[in-house]
Each structure stands twice: as structure tokens, then as C-alpha cells.
Design a protein around this nucleic acid. Structure first.
Lengths: 207, 207
DNA sequence: GACAACATACCAACCGGTCTGTATATATCA
DNA sequence: TGATATATACAGACCGGTTGGTATGTTGTC
């Protein structure tokens, strides 16, 4: 390492912000390098092409994402033995995180890549699909654990419920951005918790 | 009209398909005119600029969209006096329509515009926001009508529930596209119907 | 002959990408 | 210890192709 280091990380960081803001196609390399404060030489030293950036960017995003998930998971599991309570806690931790966020409007890079998927090769698109599936499987395991202990009031499966919460949140990102109301996302997460309560918590029905 | 007419409509149609497929930024004018089979002259005769196309395109999409909504609305209202049943029917008509769709993968142009909103002016972004709000208000009226008659099992408001179904569907579009499973969307709509049933139908709880 | 509905040629700006050059750190060996 | 060699980490000019957009010409119709 000769000059001011972590240049690659800085490029990835600004690229992520820009791509989340304007999409991948509309984000030019000139744009990225100017915002990062480096030159074209620096960029192409660290990345073979824009497609290479796309790949490393989505991998970096997935890493951050699943690191957060793992942390909430650990904390939620530590706080309660009951799978139902752990699930509720997990969602609450997510909401807490959302509400603490500011400035860079919360957005999902996976969704950006999906809506521009013709720009990427099978490798990248496959990675996005697998990441979204992993996200779902996270929830699926939690729902399966709850169903193993409590009988739901409707005939619902763990995969379906997992698909629901991921869909709901992805859509909430869109509505929140359009209406410029970041609180929409955690509000919908809270509403989903009500749904889960209705499904699995007997006390809620009596009320 | 001198030559082969409805050129403008044909341009709008291919533009819609292309933009839904690759996004707005990645869709070039050359791309559109080639796929439509016209020349640049023809395009710029009907549209002042690409920004003008963006505006007319989203307005055209909104028209198609709300025409479908109105039709389902009419049919659902005609089939049942009970607001709850009308709501369920409305969702079923939507699912029916989804399942009958093929080839052009179902997608929401509003979502595309939201994720690329830095490309558009306040006028267009405002129109997208209002359209999504209108979509919500459609559902909101339905939920309000149901709540006026039946007491929900949880403390939920009509606006929140409307926000939920729109979020869920927008997100479902993303997951469906990523996983190449178009049936995901109607599956989640059906699941939401189960949620509505749990909330408002007393029979479902007894079971 | 006036006007709408195109077609065609062209342009400047921008795009992703390559090229050559250079400063600095590190490894090698007398 | 110091000279040399080599690899890394950039800088920045440059290139061909594509972009959105324009200017001007042509054709059909009332």
C-alpha cells in the first residue's frame, strides 16, 4: 500500500450510496470517482470494469445486510426461549434500527438490481436471487420454530409467511421513498407483528 | 394523420415494455425507436424530449392501471352488498387477472420510477406519489366500509391496512421477478385475504 | 399550398474503458 | 548500509462508441 489507503472501500461506499439513489445505469463511473475524490486510474486499478463493480458492490451489501441480521438474531434468541417471543423481538430490533436511521434514505440494493436485472449477468442476478432467498429462509426458520410450538389460527406455512414479510418490507421501502416518509417501513413491520399475534397468540383473540 | 397512424401509441407501448424490463435510464431512445420500427424524426415529432416521454408514459400507465381497478371495483360491488365480501371479491378478481397474464412479466412502472426518481422532475415524481396514494385510497375506502360494519380483531385503521396491501404487492412484484415465479404475487394476495378473514370474519376464528 | 407526419444526416456531450507515466513501498543482494 | 529491482497504487490524457437532441428535407392529405 503506497498512498492513502482504503481507496477501494471508499469507492464501494460512495458507489452504494449513488446506486441506491439513482440506480445502477444512471450512475456513471465519472460520477463515482468524482464523488469519491479519486481518478479513473484509481478506479480501474481496483475494478476490472463497471460490471466488476456491480458484483463486488452487491456482495458487499449482502455482507452488511446479513451481519445486521445475525446480530438481531443473536440478541433476540438470547432474550427469549419462546420462538414466538424471539420472532417478535427480532422484528422489534429491526424497527428500532430503522427508526434510528437518518439521512441516507433506507433502501434495498437487491430491489434496485432486480429492477435493472437485464444489465447484469447470470452470476450477479443469481447472487441477488440467492440473497433474497437467504433473507426469506432466515424468517422461514423462525416461523417454522413458532409453528412447531403453537398452532396458527389459519392454515399458513412458514415459507409463505416468510415470503410475506420480505414482500411487505420490500414494498414498504418503495412507498416510503415515494412519499418521503421513512417511518412507513417500521409502521408496516409493527402491523405485521399484529398479524403474527393474531395468528399465534391466543390472548389477542379473546380481547 | 398522413402515414400509418397510432405511431405515438406504438412508441408508448414499446417504451413501457422496455422501461419495465431495463429501467428508464438504461432504455435509450435509439432502443425504443428501433423496437417500434420508426425513426428519430417520428419520435421527436410526438415527444419534445426523453423527459416528455417519461411524463406521458407514466400518465398512460396510470390510466391503464386505474381502468383495471375501476372494472374490478364495479364487478365486485355488483356481486355483493357486504363490504367485506366485496373486498374479498375485488382481491380475487385481481388474482384472476394476474394468473391470466403471461409473457410480459408483471411489473409496476411506479416502482421503477420511484427507484430512479432522481432522473425525473418534481412534476413527474409528484404524479407517481399521487398515483400510489390514489391506489392506497382505493383500498382505504374498501377497508373503511368493512370496518364500519364489522369490528376488527385488532386495532387497525383503514389507511394502515391499505398501506399494507399496496406494500405487500409492490414487494411481491420484486420477489416474483427475482425468483422468476409470477405466481408469487397472487399467492401473497391470497395470503393477505386470509389475514383479512382473520381480522373481520368471526367464523374463521372459531375453526 | 399549408400543414401534419414523418425520414435522414448530423452534432456535441458523455459513456465505459485503455493507455502511458509516476510516486512510493518493499524485497534482494553486494 | 546502500544500490537496484520490482510490485503496488494511483494520476490523467485519450479513444471510439453511444447518448439525447437538432436541423433540414420529403411525403402524403385536406
Amino acid at each position: 500500500m503506497a498512498q492513502g489507503q482504503n481507496t477501494k472501500e471508499r469507492i464501494l461506499k460512495t458507489a452504494q450510496r449513488q446506486v441506491l439513489e439513482r440506480g445502477f445505469s444512471a450512475t456513471s463511473l465519472d460520477n463515482i470517482i468524482q464523488a469519491t475524490g479519486v481518478t479513473k486510474g484509481a478506479f480501474f486499478h481496483h475494478f476490472r470494469s463497471k460490471a466488476d463493480l456491480a458484483e463486488q458492490l452487491i456482495e458487499s451489501f449482502a455482507e452488511q445486510d446479513f451481519a445486521l441480521f445475525d446480530e438481531w438474531d443473536r440478541r433476540a434468541e438470547a432474550l427469549s426461549d419462546d420462538p414466538y417471543q424471539a420472532l417478535i423481538l427480532f422484528l422489534k430490533l429491526f424497527e428500532e434500527w430503522l427508526d434510528s436511521l437518518h439521512q441516507p434514505f433506507p433502501g434495498c440494493l437487491f430491489a434496485v438490481y432486480v429492477y435493472e436485472n437485464t444489465l447484469f449477468d447470470d452470476n450477479v442476478n443469481g447472487f441477488v436471487r440467492k440473497s433474497l432467498e437467504n433473507w426469506q429462509k432466515y424468517y422461514e426458520r423462525k416461523f417454522a420454530a413458532v409453528i412447531a410450538v403453537r398452532k396458527p389460527k389459519l392454515e399458513v406455512s412458514a415459507p409463505e409467511l416468510a415470503e410475506s414479510i420480505v414482500s411487505l418490507l420490500e414494498g414498504a421501502f418503495i412507498l416510503a421513498r415515494s412519499g418521503e416518509q421513512p417511518e412507513l417501513i417500521s409502521r408496516q413491520s409493527r402491523l405485521f407483528r399484529g398479524y403474527v399475534k393474531l395468528l399465534f397468540d391466543d390472548d389477542s383473540v379473546a380481547a
